[in-house]
Design a protein around this nucleic acid. Sequence first.
DNA 1: CTGTTAGCGCTTTCAC
DNA 2: GTGAAAGCGCTAACAG
Lengths: 336, 336
Amino acid sequence: MPSTIRDIRERTGLSLATISKYLNGGNVLPENRTLIEEAIRELHYQPNEIARGLVTNKTRTVGVVVYDIGSLFNGTLLRYIGQMLRKERYGLLICDSNNSEETEAENIRFLLRKKVDGIIVIPVSSVSLFLKPAKEAGVPVVLLDRPLSDEALDCVRIDNRKAARLAVEKLIENGHENIAVICSNEGGEYTGYERFKGYRDAMEAAGLIIDPDYLKMRDHSIETGYESVKELLSLRNRPTAVFMSNYEVSLGAVMAVNESDLSCPGDISLIGFDDLILSHIVKPRLYMVVQPMQEMGEKAVKLLLERIGSRGRGETQATEIILNTRISRGDSIARI
Amino acid sequence: MPSTIRDIRERTGLSLATISKYLNGGNVLPENRTLIEEAIRELHYQPNEIARGLVTNKTRTVGVVVYDIGSLFNGTLLRYIGQMLRKERYGLLICDSNNSEETEAENIRFLLRKKVDGIIVIPVSSVSLFLKPAKEAGVPVVLLDRPLSDEALDCVRIDNRKAARLAVEKLIENGHENIAVICSNEGGEYTGYERFKGYRDAMEAAGLIIDPDYLKMRDHSIETGYESVKELLSLRNRPTAVFMSNYEVSLGAVMAVNESDLSCPGDISLIGFDDLILSHIVKPRLYMVVQPMQEMGEKAVKLLLERIGSRGRGETQATEIILNTRISRGDSIARI
DNA sequence: CTGTTAGCGCTTTCAC
DNA sequence: GTGAAAGCGCTAACAG
C-alpha cells in the first residue's frame, strides 16, 4: 500500500533516476527538487530500505550482540552505542545472546542475513569460531569489553589485569592481607582470568600468600557472587576483604553479605567492579572499579564505522583500544 | 561474494522455482532434495533475507521500542520478549527511545522502513500520534506496560490503580497514616497518574487525609526519587512511610535514604515498585509490588503474533490484557 | 542535469 | 513436481 518511487514519477513526470538521485542527495534542478519534495509529502513517501539494501548491499545499520540484555552493564553500553550511532545516522539492531554461545552464533548469522554493515559484540564465547561467518562475508566486527583468547581482533576494552591489581592494592593499602577474589573463568574466559592475574600480581608484589580457599573461580553470574560469599563467610579463617571482579558477581556478593549477620566494612571489606547504580544504592557505599562506559561505547562505534568505511581496502591490522579505569571511593573498606 | 540461489541452480541443474520451493518447505522429489541440501552445504548458502523481504513484504522480524535500554525494567522485559520470539523463530530489532518522544517517533519510522512485521512498544509518549505511521502502513502494534491516554490500543499491562492501592493498603495495615507518594505524571503520563489514583483510593477508603507536602509528582527518573525523598525527610512533619510508584523512583529514593541519617524501617517505612534486583541487594529487604515480567513479555509477543497472523482480515477490537501483581515481602515496613 | 535500461536475489504465477 | 518468466522497489551505469 505504501507509495513508491513510481508514484512520484507519475506525480512529477520526472524519471526514476532523477528521483533516486534526489533521494540520495544528488544535484537536482531547484524546480524539480520542490516538485519531488511536494510529491513526497503528499504521498507520505518513505523509501523502502529493503529494496535499497538489495541493490546497494548496504543497510546503514549496525548490529550489536550482547551477552545479556538483562544486565545493566550491557544496557548501559547499549545506551551509549545507540546514542553515537544515532548521531552518525546509523540504525541499530540489538541481539541478546542470553549467555548462550549457541544463541550468540545464531545472532551473528541473523545479523548477516539482515545485511548489517558491521557488528559490535560483547561476547559470551571466548574463541573466535562464532565470528567465522562474519569474516567470510567480509563484515567488520568490533569486540567490546571482552577480547577473545585465540585471536587478536579489533577490540575496545580496559586493561583488566591492571584494573584488578589496582583494586586489590587498595585493599592492601588499608592493611588487608586475607583477601579473597571472586571471578569468572568459565570455559577459559579471558577477561575473568586476566582479572585474577591482576589480583595475584598485587598479592605477590605485597608478599602475601593466597589461601586456596579464598579463590572463587566460577561463572559470570549473580549466583556465583552470592554463593561464593556465603562460603567465604563461613570459613573458620574467613577473609577480611573480598574483591568482586565483575558486576554480576558484585550484585550477588552484596546480597549474601546483607543476608548474613556480618556487617561491611566492620566484619568484611568489599571492592567491586563496574560503577553502575549498585554502588549508589547499597549502604555502605561500595568501592568500585569504574570502567568508562560511555567512552567504551563511543570508541567501539567509531572504530567500527572506520572499518566499514574502509571495507575492502586490504587487511588492516587489528586495533586494540585500551581505556583507563579509576576507582570510585566508598565506605566499604575498613582500615586494619 | 556470498552464494545465491543461482549458484545452487548451476550445481544441481534444477530451476530457481524448485529451489525456492524447497527453501520454503514445499514438496520436492527426495533425490532433488538431497541434491539441493548438498549444494547448500558446500556453498555455505544462506538465503538473502533482504531479497526475500522485498518480494514477500514480510521479514519475520519484530521491532521493539523501549523507553530506555539502560533501565533494568526494560532490559528484563526485553529478555523475555527475545526468548519468546526466538522460540517462534522470529527475529528481533530493538530500538532505544532514550526517554525522548522525538526519538521514539523516529524509531517507529525506522522500524517501518526496515519492514518489520509488527512492533511492541514500551512508550515514552502518552498519546498515540507517534504510532500513526504504523497504523497507515497497516503494521500491528502492541503496547507493553503503558497504555496511551487518548486511544485504546492492544496492550499488555497490569491494573496500575489496583496495584498501587494494594501497596498503600499494606502500609495502612501496619498503622501508617502519614504516607507520601512519589510518582510520575510528566506530560499527563497515564500510568503514573493511575498509580496516584490507587494511592488516593487507599487513603480515602481508610479515611486518611493527604498532606499536599506528601505528594511528589514529577518525572519518571532516579533523580525524582532521590530529590523527593530528600525533601520528604526534611519536612518538619515528615511522613512515616513512602510509596515509590515505579522502579527508577525506587532506586533514587533508596539512595536518598541511605545518604540520610535516618534508618529504614525505624524512621521511615518504604514500599516500592517492580521487583528487580533492587529489593535483593538493599538492606533491609524492600517490600515491592511485583509485576509478572515474564508473563508480560510473553503475552505481548503472543498477542502481536496473533495480529500479524490475521493482518488484513478486518479491524479487530483492541485487546487489553491485564495481569495480576503481587507484593513481595520485605523488612522495610515498621509496625506502628 | 535527466532519462533509459539493466539488474540486486528472491518468490510466484502459470503452463507443462 | 518442475521450469520459464515476471516483478518486488530501488540504484547505477550509460547516454543524451
